[in-house]
Write a protein that binds this DNA or RNA. Structure first.
Lengths: 356, 356
DNA sequence: GTGAAAGCGCTAACAA
DNA sequence: TTGTTAGCGCTTTCAC
């Protein structure tokens, strides 16, 4: 272990300046790559920095530039591969642009989300991407804060009512209608939609879900029912499917009815897996006893028995686009119009006629 | 929009102090919750802070405490549910302890990993958890740096040779032996192991993989072969399975042999999915034509056709423990001994006798 | 092109 | 308990 390594403190610009016999300001300019520096000084400083093992202190830099080159990302649940994939897209774009990701897990809880936003603001992130857990304007004061403090903001997967912030999401209305049509044509009438979104009380009207994908998905279902001259029974919409236990309870409730559903639609792959397990435990076979559709198209859905009919979303690309746009915003660069992200119904074998 | 909101700068301790008619130091103490503050001053300061909409500047705080309450996490691929789950464990523990996560994706590339470490050090994270992409000491100078700069460090999933840093991982030797035994007993002799780990050139000896799980897994296989009085053909070990394309190539190479493997072991769920697809394309059925085992036990492996025999690892709990230990280290608190994390073979139906 | 000096917003001695 | 005074390591005027 050399003497250098034993230095109690890490070398600073001042140390480098001294070693290179230039002023602190000049050394800082050379090191930071700004201002005017002669070649001669530049190399002298570089050499000195290298031999001292100098490392810039990003914190100090952030302190007086006000920019941290960090963007905060708040997702509902990192464990959900949906967000894993989105995060990968964001990380890829961010890295290339020299930005870093500060992660926040909201657990789909409004309070946790607010806390995460506050902390990120305090840490002076340059911008935030959030998958909001609530869509009503009243519950999103913290997002307004972000704007008021002059930070960039983008929403992911969901929009917020009356909040003029770009939201990167798919439009599900058409695909939901298409999926429902498939089910209707196969002869289903009781189709349950299960989502992990939080909702207090029973489902009453689409507005309860605001601008969330849920609202679109339910809207699409209703449209399909209407087109078929039927009425959709909204009591089949089940929210709060956040854990295996809650999902087990939902399934139980559903099958206590005099007329249980004959088809299930899961809002994401985690909900789907849990649901699949719960219905298997009741001895229900897919698609003979129960038809099944899930949102998100992960590779495994293709090789399960039976292969699942799914709604595919370009999640990775959406993650990239969210990061791309947020960063452009931070830099004050222009961005083109937001491309439309289409969800697509992929027919496989989990939908059949209901048992007589 | 009120006048307050129009202030060009955010309120600082000084502003709050002025509004509460106390000294800057006293206001800072009240706001920061340290030192001695009378109740009266405390409430006056709180009130002033609230009315000004004051927010602490964490960056400034970090600057002179040297602590950022942030820990860096570098994983091979966030998209991999294995890391998603681990990350969830880390995030849960971190949040409860008041820490935040700075994310880094190494893409299993040494260079990207080094860059991520450098940036995190510059951002003054309090500690780093990394799933190292290489296990040789020479390729891990950047990890030594972390230690030299006095930051906490923990390794996840893999260890590094001759680097005295705690590594949170499973021991796979026994379970790999057990899995291989199953295969041997079923009559298999040519068992290929496919991993996304990087390796230049062909596999030669276990040492090439250092202390990685790969080494243990291969070691266990060899032990099983040895116990059965046979010799394992190491040319069946295939690394660099980092993408669908590479995996397709590996499968092709394997099946160009005069004697293709009769069983496949996948190092993780991503590799497994890709392999499953590639072999299906060749018309190979599992388990009639080919037996299959995968590491990691995600719920879907239970409902595919056929249900997969897997090696389960307590990934979430390992993530928690890694964060717990890193944080204890940062705080200078004592931690008990590292618990042993056991991997477990779960027999399902993807292993059968090889075709005659 | 270079240097001196003044902060960024906070914490930490040290006195009072 | 309170206030005063230095910094933390960097960027940024503003002169020269």
């Amino acid at each position: 272990m050399t003497i250098q390594k034993m230095r109690s403190k890490a070398p600073t610009v001042a140390d480098v300046a001294r070693a290179a016999s230039v002023s602190k300001a000049q050394a800082a300019r050379a090191l930071g790559g700004y201002g005017a520096v002669s070649e001669e000084v530049q190399t002298r400083v570089n050499r000195a920095a290298a031999s001292l093992g100098y490392r810039p202190n990003e914190v100090a830099r952030t302190m007086n530039t006000g920019r941290s080159n960090t963007i905060g990302v708040i997702v509902g649940d990192i464990e959900n591969p949906h967000f894993g994939l989105a995060l990968r897209g964001m990380a890829d774009v961010a890295r290339q642009a020299g930005f870093h990701l500060l992660l926040g897990n909201s657990d789909e809880k409004g309070q946790a989300e607010q806390d995460a936003v506050r902390v990120m603001l305090e840490k002076r992130v340059d911008g935030i991407i959030v998958a909001p857990s609530h869509s009503s304007r009243e519950k999103n004061g913290h997002l307004l804060q972000v704007l008021e403090e002059g930070r960039a903001l983008r929403l992911f997967d969901r929009a917020v009512i009356d909040l003029d912030v770009e939201a990167i999401c798919c439009d599900f209305t058409a695909v939901a209608r298409e999926a429902t049509q498939q089910l209707l044509e196969a002869g289903h009438e009781r189709i349950a939609y299960i989502t992990s979104m939080e909702l207090e009380g029973e489902y009453r009207e689409a507005a309860d879900f605001g601008l969330t994908p849920v609202a679109q998905r339910v809207g699409g279902m209703m449209a399909a029912f209407a087109a078929a001259g039927r009425r959709y029974d909204t009591s089949l919409i089940q929210a709060n499917a956040g854990s295996d236990a809650q999902i087990a309870r939902i399934v139980e409730t559903l099958w206590q009815r005099s007329a249980p559903p004959t088809a299930l639609i899961a809002s994401d792959s985690l909900v789907a897996m849990s649901l699949l397990r719960a219905v298997a435990q009741r001895g229900l076979r897919i698609p003979q006893d129960l038809s099944f559709i899930m949102y998100d198209n992960f590779p495994w859905s293709e090789i399960v028995a039976p292969p699942l009919t799914v709604v595919a979303q370009p999640v990775y690309e959406m993650g990239r686009e969210a990061a791309r746009r947020l960063i452009a915003d931070i830099r004050g660069e222009p961005v083109g119009p937001l491309p439309a992200f289409g969800a697509e119904l992929i027919l496989r074998h989990s939908v059949a006629a209901p048992a007589p």
